[in-house]
Design a protein around this nucleic acid. Structure first.
Lengths: 327, 327
DNA sequence: CTGTTAGCGCATTCAC
DNA sequence: GTGAATGCGCTAACAG
């Protein structure tokens, strides 16, 4: 910057003013400085600016891994964040709790003006520390500290909708594939609860043997689990899979056994992936409404960045999308 | 840091030395300093360190959008980069050329020790500028400047393998779904060339009417294009789809017409997505071997970061995975 | 093994 | 409308 100043015959401060778009320079000076900038190929040093200004104009979205469903949300978040002249960058924590803590060093997080965090294994105490160090919005299924912003899907309602739909179409032995009985709140246990709620509302009871855990939330594991369920001899005429990936694994298992969908077994997933429309006659699913999730998260984050201290816990709505895998 | 130094009765330099793990402090001093650090909850200011040290220990992967296939590659890249004590962050360029340039401001890129860049609309001149400003490895299909590192899949060979496989299984009217005749090299035109190569090697000619463009590389567009191809009355007994997403769209169109796969029409995709194993009897595809791509990219980047100036253009191999959509 | 000096590149403050 | 002084928080280089 001092090179530019010298070459343009002004002080460093004038260059700085002009580059930051402050309206204090005469048109002549401005043009001269900008032409010198172009001529010398000068680029501002953002690290120095960040240090001096105390902000980076960037926001981090921190996720367990890049290949999950986060991509869909991240693109929407990026647009919203760019609208307020900030920059979204993604970081990953490496899904195990050990690495999660390292990746989440406060020092790194403080490099951002705000942080959107989807974390699994972090304790409340650590989250509180992070929330004190940097404007923070938590994403995800777990119960979270009341004084931190938190946005999540309405997992239970989505599961309730899915199960209610299956019940209304005549299914009476509905397995919940990937469901779990976790002690703490999790995606899998919330969705299992919604499955129970729908039964209760219909005056029906649930059979815990129809809660079918899945090893890794991958298609192959779901297919294996579905095969075992079919082999078990338990009557099954409906499957609510807690994610679409699992639902596709289930469809594969049903297909290889020659079991017709939806005539013999109906299937509902959760996520409304693009691919749902393209398997056989389509997979009925729950649309997670990522747009609203993203908009809410950004709104809360910007409140915090602006100095607000209020914390909200927002649950965004989901909806049922009926396709050919249910009657 | 000066607070810590004062509290521990040492100078800031001693604190700095200890926090950077330099082996120059006595065990007693080290413990005292570390306990004060813990007590005060001190966290180093990375922005200041970055400014002073002239490096950030982080590498950017810059992609057009987060929801593409990049997630799969990014997780592998992250592991490799973390192995050398650096940090991978993702940024996106917003896939249109206008925004691409803004997002790629040299100032931002210089905040990273190295950059892995997958860019579509950037000119050679701009790429050269970037390559001069920061250690750079280009990813992607286009032809790239010779003096810049570049890694890409062997698109043509993958397409050739796919088409050769279809020919060997008896297909003689093979459409290339999503293929294009681009003036410059692109994924779609390289794969179309591989399709032509396979025909030529078999002593067969190709029909340009079987090069079926697709609007947006989405399943719905592929389904539409496939329907139109079937309606056109052209004989078709094989489809090489330039991506698996397109292949799934094609399978949907064939399914709704009651055309049996692979008996009447055989289908091969490209990407070897997880879902390929789970549609009907499986989708034959080309495995892109992302592991090797990632390893190569990181190797080249680290050479550059270490001061090397040699540029390599590496084409990583791909392989055929046969499933039920071909005979 | 520990401390002093100097400065990374920029922006805030306030004077002119 | 422009500029001088000052320091953001840290570390390289070197002295002791």
């Amino acid at each position: 910057m001092s090179d530019v100043a010298r070459e343009a015959g002004v002080s460093v401060m004038t260059v700085s003013h002009i580059l930051n778009g402050r309206p204090r320079a005469s048109e002549a000076t401005r043009e001269r400085v900008l032409s010198v900038v172009a001529e010398l190929g000068y680029e501002i040093n953002l690290t120095a600016r960040n240090l001096r200004a105390g902000r980076t104009d960037s926001v981090a979205l921190i996720v367990p891994s890049f290949h999950d469903y986060f991509g869909a949300v991240a693109d929407r978040l990026a647009l919203l964040i760019e609208a307020s002249n900030r920059h979204l960058v993604l970081e990953r924590t490496a899904a195990n709790a050990q690495h999660e803590r390292e990746a989440l060093s406060l020092a790194r997080l403080r490099m951002y003006d705000g942080v959107l965090l989807s974390a699994y294994g972090i304790s409340y105490a650590e989250l509180e520390l992070i929330g004190k160090a940097v404007p923070l919005v938590l994403l995800g299924e777990r119960e979270m500290p009341a004084d931190l912003n938190h946005v999540r899907l309405d997992n239970e309602e989505g599961a309730r909708l899915a199960t209610e739909h299956l019940l209304s179409r005549g299914a009476r032995h509905i397995a919940v594939l990937g469901g779990r009985f976790d002690p703490e709140q999790s995606m899998a246990s919330s969705r299992r609860e919604g499955w129970e709620t729908a039964h209760r509302e219909a005056g029906l009871s649930t059979d815990p043997r129809l809660v079918v855990p899945v090893a890794e939330y991958a298609m192959a594991d779901a297919r294996t689990a579905m095969r075992q369920l079919l082999d078990s001899g338990l009557p099954v005429d409906g499957v609510f899979a807690v994610t679409d990936v699992l639902a596709h694994g289930a469809l594969a298992a049903l297909g290889e056994r020659g079991i017709r969908v939806p005539d013999e077994v109906q299937v509902v997933g959760f996520d409304d992936l693009d691919v749902d429309e393209f398997v056989s006659s389509g997979l009925t699913s729950i649309n997670p409404n990522h747009d609203q999730l993203a908009a809410t998260a950004v709104r809360l984050l910007e409140q915090r960045i602006a100095g607000g201290t209020a914390a909200e816990h927002v649950v965004t709505p989901v909806s049922l999308v009926v396709r050919g895998s249910t009657r």
